[in-house]
Every structure is written in structure tokens, then in C-alpha cells.
Design a protein around this nucleic acid. Structure first.
Lengths: 220, 220
DNA sequence: GCATCCATGTAACCAGTTACATGATTTG
DNA sequence: CAAATCATGTAACTGGTTACATGGATGC
């Protein structure tokens, strides 16, 4: 999972570990950050696998320092450059290799299976623009199926909760509401997707997505 | 974390591992279940620590089989009873000991610190009825502080997201909305709490909770 | 020249997972 | 009696964490 995230970020621009960590928490949804203790080993693994490699700090294809607001950082890079690219223990700026691109595609494809995990799904969605439309739709459909199941569970939990326990009750109700919203969100994404590229049997006007979330089946 | 959950469930009634696993996913929020590979070792650890012990399958203080709807299970217990309580490798019904009760209290108290993790917080909230009112309020306040921070991050992410990436944009907006709702939910719980037991300086009529979630600070 | 932030890395640990092995009980 | 389900347990692995060690660069 970390590997996928790293490759995805390096696809956009070359970065060194420290900066990578920032982006991981800031722009991807990695709640409050991956630790260096996992990031650096991951980078090392990817480098060993030939998926990324440390590039010279100057003369890269993409502009390596695109106005992030961290003036200090940019200045440091500038100095590093004119000093002649880091010595024994300076910054290591990584770039993605063709093998890395291939690995990225593969991870993005295979990890779709295990997107019952919310974090994995979120990560994949953040990179969904790299997927072909039908794979994207498939991913969303699988997610939807999972959320339908989850919503059923949540509704069962609401019914099963102890009488007289305000906290548990509030919790399960909140969870159910969240599940409902997650589902309607995904259904909206699916609808957008179909509208943008009605690839298959789907005719234009009729019943785009059979929404489950509005469905108030009262099986008590 | 698992230990806390187990003890909390055993406080309510005696259970064997298999059934415990079901409750863990069904009634607590353990999304799609803990595996046996972690549950049984956890039970073994707790037993070794004297926090739980395997009880005779008959004649316990609390009614061990209170109408869960799983007829098969109840029948099985009944048969096990009249057969004279399991032999070498039957069901092992666990009950909580006084030491277990103490451990539960301790875990519930100490684990409040690490409730930056949503799962931990949810678990603690499910057992919040066992906390003294001020500890409960403290837990909610800490959670609120965490969510305020989180919401700030989410809003920053929305601003930072790549132009032209529909999926990332939709994701961060959804996450922000979820964070907003989480926060208002917690604030509601806090308000309820204060209304129920206005323990401290708080006067009755004035400004119960200074809601952050409605606050639309426009620092662009 | 000292504190602080940037930056990389290692080692020990931890809480869970999957896969495997075993066996009792129920039901058709 | 075979298949399904209930039930317990172990071993290897995974994907991270915290704590620690190191050192360059910057700012005051």
C-alpha cells in the first residue's frame, strides 16, 4: 500500500524521502502520516527492485521544486545543486523508472481486490485517473457492493444495540449514517462515470443507478 | 485493544471464543471481524494474566444464553450442559474475574490517550457507560480537539488538491464533509453530557459548546 | 557556536493477518 | 456416513510503529 502511494507521488514529480512523507499525509489521505521507520525501508525496497532510483539533484525532466511555499526547502535544493549534487549523506531525490511505472499499474490493478479496506480504496481512488474507464467503474461497483453489505450490517447493529446505552446507540447510529452517506457518494461517482462514458448496455435516459441508500426496507 | 473489547463483552455475559468473535464484529464496530488467529491468543494471554477464566458451562451467575436468535447455539449449549460440561476439547466458556474487571478499568482509562485512532475511540465510546462522568467528558473533549485539528487538515487538503482531478477532488471533499459531521456529532454528545451533569463552572443558560464545525473561517 | 530543523537510516517491537492443523457436533 | 458448521489452536508473515543513532545546514 505504501509502495503504491510512493510510486503514485513519484509519477507526478521527483521527491526525496522527507518531502515524500509530507505529501503522503498532506495530499493523500494517510491520516497523520506514515513514519520514517516505514517510509525509508519502503523506498529502499523499491530501489532494490529497480522501481525507483536516486536521481542527480539537478537537471531532471520535471521541475523538481515547484513552488511549494516552503522557501527554506527550495533554497536548500538550490544550494545543493550548485554545490555539485549531494555528497555522502545529503538528500536523495528519487524518480520513478519504467519498471516503477509498470509496478504502479500492477499494484493499482491487483490491489483493487482488497479495497474492502477503506484506506486502500481511498488511495486507489486518488489515483483513479490513471485507470482505464472500465477498470475504474469496476472498482467503484465493487466498492458499492461492499458498502451495501456494510450498510445492512450497520442497520442490524442499530437494531441490536442495548437498550439504555446512550453512547453505544449514538455510535451505531452515527456509523449507520456515515455508511449511508458513503454509499450515496459512491453511487454519485458511478452515475458521473456512466454519464461520462456510457460504455456498455446502459441506455442514456433510463434508471442510471438503482440507488440502494434511499431504500428503507423495514424488515423488523 | 482487542483485550479491552473482550473484557467489555465478558462483563456483560460469559461467552466462548467463537461466539465472542461474532459479537466483536456484530455489536462492536470491529469492521468485518477479528480473526481467530488473534482472538484465541488474546484470550490465552488474558487467561494467563488471570483476567478471565474458563468457567463450567453450567450454573453461572449471569444467564449465559439470553435469546440471541441463534437457536442452534443455544441448543448446543443446552446439550453440552446435560452432557456434563465439555471434555478434552469442547467449548471453553470464559468469564471475567475481579482482576479482569480491574484490567478493564485500567485499559479503558489509559487507552483514552491513544484515541487519535478512530477505532480505539469508537471502542471506548461503546464502553463509555462504565466511565465516571468527568472521565467521559474528558475523553469526548480530547476527541473533539483531535477532530478540530483533523478538519483543519481536511480543509487544507481540499484547497491543495490538483486541479482537474475529479476523483481526488471528490475524495477530499467527501472526507472533509465526513470530518465536519464527526465533529458536530461529538459536539452534540458533549452538549448532552453537560446538560446531564453540569459538573463544573458551566452555568446553565450560556454558550454550552463553542461549535467549531459551523465556523466558516475563510483564510484564503 | 549552539539550537533547531532537515534528512536518512536501523533495530526492536507490535497488533494484527493468513494459512494450516485438528477435532467435535449436527443435519440431511 | 458424509458434508457442513462449530470450535480451538499454532506458525509464519505483514505492514506498520516507536525509539534510537547519525549527521548536515540554517538561523540567531
Amino acid at each position: 500500500m505504501l509502495e503504491l502511494a510512493i510510486l503514485g507521488l513519484l509519477k507526478e514529480q521527483e521527491l526525496h524521502g522527507y518531502e515524500l512523507k509530507k505529501r503522503l499525509s498532506e495530499t493523500l489521505g494517510f491520516a497523520s502520516g506514515v513514519s520514517f521507520g516505514s517510509l525509508y525501508p519502503a523506498l529502499a525496497r523499491l530501489e532494490a527492485a529497480g522501481a525507483v532510483k536516486a536521481v542527480e539533484a539537478f537537471a531532471s525532466t520535471a521541475p523538481p521544486v515547484p513552488l511549494t511555499g516552503s522557501l527554506g526547502g527550495e533554497l536548500a535544493v538550490f544550494r545543493a545543486r550548485k554545490a555539485g549534487a549531494r555528497g555522502s549523506r545529503g538528500k536523495k531525490v528519487y524518480g520513478i523508472t519504467p519498471r516503477g511505472e509498470a509496478l504502479f499499474e500492477e499494484l493499482l490493478a491487483t490491489e483493487s481486490q482488497s479495497s474492502d479496506d477503506e484506506r486502500v480504496f481511498n488511495l486507489r481512488l486518488a489515483f483513479a485517473r490513471y485507470l482505464p474507464p472500465d477498470a475504474r467503474l469496476g472498482m467503484l461497483e465493487r466498492r458499492r457492493a461492499h458498502l451495501v453489505e456494510r450498510l445492512v450490517q450497520m442497520r442490524a447493529r442499530v437494531k441490536a444495540v442495548r437498550e439504555g446505552d446512550r453512547y453505544s446507540r449514538s455510535l451505531v447510529e452515527h456509523d449507520r449514517d456515515a455508511a449511508e452517506r458513503d454509499l450515496t457518494w459512491i453511487e454519485q461517482l458511478i452515475a458521473n462515470e456512466r454519464a461520462a462514458a456510457p460504455s456498455r448496455d446502459e441506455a442514456v435516459g433510463a434508471a442510471p443507478v438503482p440507488s440502494f441508500s434511499k431504500n428503507q426496507e423495514d424488515n423488523h
